[in-house]
């Protein structure tokens, strides 16, 4: 073997000094990331709004004034009557209470499938993009086939063959969504793989595992995370759509999509039944979009300037 001169390391920090420095460094990074995020007013507002929605959903059993499945006032009572702030729906149930309860399902249906699909996609897309070869070929052809169907249609087909329910919605959307994220992961992987710093890393002796974990993943996560975050809102809408079609959450459970569906028959006479859940869906979906934009800034070291 080659003989090596002993390396003079000079002054060496003690282990706890290193740990303390690392902790300080991470805290500083977090703080800078937060500054970068908070610079975007829309993202900050969206985060606050969403935090309130999540809190309300969690506290729904406590703060709901009425039982979401029982009549509490006159049929289609307009807002303000019978002591119901947002009025009652076609069955006389309190719309406010139903919105509170419906938030639980909406958030679950929005976040659940996106998280599941992202995790599956990270594995599939990274493997295909980094190693290429036959696995890549087969996976891309399957994805091409899936892309022939619109996402909603595919989700309808999958949900249609299963028992209706929350878990069906989550499963159906997860499957339908995976190809979209997997494709992004794959292209991003291919993109990062071509960067000169990958070749530099290889020239420095890094193996596949190190390159994937320290180079590809950290550089690929930001765009994927941003994309996934904006998808949460969209998947909420898709989930509401499935419930609207009767393939998802079943009445009398409260779900924003079902609430819109139930109100559409009396849209002219009692528009508030449709409008309130409709507006909430749009606002929450938009919030996820704004949060995605803010994350893009927070995750980019270049924007976390000192």
């Amino acid at each position: 073997m080659t003989q090596r001169q002993p390396i003079d390391s000079g002054k060496v920090d003690s282990a706890w000094q290193i740990r303390r420095d690392r902790m300080r460094f991470h805290l500083r990074t977090l703080r800078l990331a937060w500054y970068a995020y908070a610079k975007d007013n829309a993202a900050l507002g969206a985060l606050i709004f969403l935090a309130i929605i999540i809190l309300i959903s969690l506290l729904a059993p406590v703060i709901s004034p009425y039982d979401p499945a029982e009549a509490a006032g006159a049929i289609a009572a307009p807002p303000g009557t019978d002591g119901l702030i947002l009025g009652a729906d076609v069955d006389g149930r309190d719309i406010l209470s139903r919105l509170f309860w419906g938030g639980r399902i909406a958030l679950l249906v929005g976040i659940g499938p996106t998280v599941v699909a992202t995790l599956i996609s990270l594995f599939l897309g990274l493997t295909a993009g980094y190693f290429g070869g036959w696995f890549d070929q087969i996976m891309m052809r399957i994805i091409d086939v899936v892309f022939a169907f619109p996402l909603v249609l595919l989700a309808i087909v999958i949900a249609g063959v299963l028992e209706p329910g929350v878990w069906t919605v989550i499963l159906a959307i997860s499957i339908a969504l995976t190809p979209y994220i997997a494709r992004l992961v794959r292209t991003t992987t291919l993109n990062v793989k071509q960067q000169p710093y990958i070749e530099a890393a290889r020239a420095g002796g890094a193996g596949d595992a190190a390159i994937i974990l320290r180079y590809i993943l950290p550089n690929m996560i930001p765009p994927v995370l941003v994309f996934a975050t904006t998808l949460i809102g969209l998947m909420m809408v898709v989930g509401s759509g499935l419930s609207f079609l009767g393939l998802g959450i079943q009445p009398p459970d409260a779900d924003w999509g079902i609430m819109v569906a139930e109100g559409r028959g009396v849209l002219r006479k009692a528009p508030h039944i449709t409008i309130f859940p409709g507006v909430v869906i749009v606002l929450v979906a938009l919030s996820f979009n704004f949060i995605g934009d803010g994350l893009r800034d927070a995750l980019d070291p270049r924007r976390r300037s000192r």
Binding site: Y197, E199, A201, N219
Partner: peptide, 10 residues
């Protein structure tokens, strides 16, 4: 390498 701007992991 040739291009120091892109040869470091950002």
């Amino acid at each position: 390498f040739q291009d120091p701007m892109t040869s470091l992991n950002p």
